[in-house]
Amino acid sequence: MSEQNKRVVLDYVDAFNRADLDAVCELFAPDALIHGALGWGGIEAARPVWSDLMRCFQISLEVDAVVAEGDSVAVRYTERGRSVASFRGGPVTGREYEMIAMEWFLVKEGHIKRRWGARDSAAMFRQLGLPFS
């Protein structure tokens, strides 16, 4: 089961890197709960946040490590991106960023039921030359 769950999470990474929002969302169970630096909620709360992040920062996740045991999968990434569109009314700087990010997933029956994300958004915004509020 651990290897199958790891595959679900790696499919999430692949879809995120392709900026395929529909494919990302399809990997989550309808009642999934998503916790992140910009808030928490169901897929309806996460979808617009992910859309903005993909569109504004062209985020790329490089998997540095992945551990799977039972229903749990933990991933450490090097996250990279660039300011290419206005994020929540802020300026476009064209600057790039790089940071470490981590996510923990609970996968059941081939779908992500819970996702917790940890990233240093303040460092990201500092590197991009954007105000952090």
Rank of each mutant, 00 (worst) to 15 (best):
V92P: 10
E96P: 11
E62C: 05
A118S: 14
Q4M: 06
R95I: 04
A37Y: 03
S133N: 14
R114T: 07
R95E: 08
P30T: 08
P131R: 13
A74R: 10
D52Y: 06
L33P: 08
E44V: 08
A101K: 03
W116L: 09
C25M: 15
V67D: 10
G117A: 09
L10F: 08
F87D: 07
G89W: 11
L130M: 08
K6E: 10
D120H: 09
A122Y: 01
L27Q: 01
V24N: 00
F125M: 14
W116G: 05
T78K: 11
R18L: 08
R76Y: 14
F57L: 07
H111Y: 04
S72V: 14
T78C: 09
P91V: 13
A68M: 00
V9D: 00
F28R: 01
T78N: 10
S83C: 11
R55D: 10
E69G: 12
D11F: 03
I112Y: 08
S51K: 11
W40Y: 08
I34C: 01
F28Q: 02
W116P: 08
D31A: 05
G70T: 09
A118M: 12
I43S: 11
H111D: 01
D22L: 07
Y77T: 00
L21I: 06
G81T: 01
D120S: 05
D20C: 11
G89R: 12
S60E: 12
E3L: 03
L128I: 04
M124A: 04
W116E: 09
W40A: 07
W104D: 00
R82A: 03
T78P: 08
N17E: 04
K6A: 12
S133K: 14
L128K: 05
A101T: 04
V8R: 03
E26T: 06
S133M: 13
N5Y: 01
L61D: 04
V66W: 02
S83K: 09
E44R: 14
T93V: 15
A37K: 05
P131G: 13
F87Y: 13
G110R: 13
S60H: 15
R95T: 05
A74F: 10
A23F: 02
D14L: 15
D22Q: 05
K113I: 09
E44I: 08
V24K: 04
V24C: 09
K108H: 14
A65F: 10
A122L: 06
F105C: 01
K6F: 07
W40S: 11
S72H: 14
R80A: 03
V9E: 01
L53T: 09
F125Y: 13
I112N: 00
S72C: 13
V67N: 04
V63S: 07
E26N: 12
A23V: 04
